[in-house]
Amino acid sequence: MKTITEQKPFEEIGESLGEAKRVYLIGCGTCATMCATGGKSEVLKMKDRLDEIGKRVTGWMVIPTACDDLTREAVTENAEAIGQAEALLVMTCAFGVQTVARYTDKPVYPALNTLFIGKEDAPAHFSEVCIQCGNCVLGRTAGICPLTACPKGLLNGPCGGYKHGMCEVDPNRECAWVEIYNRLKRMDQLEKLSVLQPLKDHSKMAHPRHMSTGR
């Protein structure tokens, strides 16, 4: 699973930087590189675009995994170039931005929007796999997650909105519940579809979430 990101509109990035003239750029070598939103080439492209609008990039780096604690060392090693900057523009997921922010007193701005936790289905095509609901139902749904794959997150079977097995909300996608139905039928477990499901426990999704293993 990777954190899937997209670049914010450049105008929004420019506006967020505001009066800051000198900017330090940070990318990430893991998820943002795979999404082509914060790898080396995107960081260099961003440098050029900032130059065009009169900003000066005091330096840049692509941290191997920006969300990792080693980010502290990366920030310390580049303290000089960072020190010259008035702002840090971070081309990583929100986790990376928060990690960088923890280790600097400079204003930190995100260049990306963090979209979802997902997988790469095909080159440059990503899809969501899990909404981290805290109460996994996959054993009841033939290994297909209706909370993620059904726009309404239904637990009791399909709504009336599927047409020839396709989802009304996104007609290019198969209805998650029709998929679940087909797979349960193949496994001769269709009786699972008849069970009245318990209500979702949203307290498991209440933010911010914490967990201690007691180790």
Binding site: P151, K152, G153, L154, L155, N156, G157, C159, G160, G161, E168, V169, L196, Q197, L199, K200, H202
Partner: peptide, 24 residues
């Protein structure tokens, strides 16, 4: 009823709730 999804209407940016569904 479960209800249509929000993107089909005139407030597509609204938060869809679906805490319950038609059955529950």
């Amino acid at each position: 009823l479960t209800g249509d999804y929000v993107s089909l209407g005139d407030h597509p940016e609204a938060k869809p709730v679906f805490d319950l569904d038609s059955v529950s």
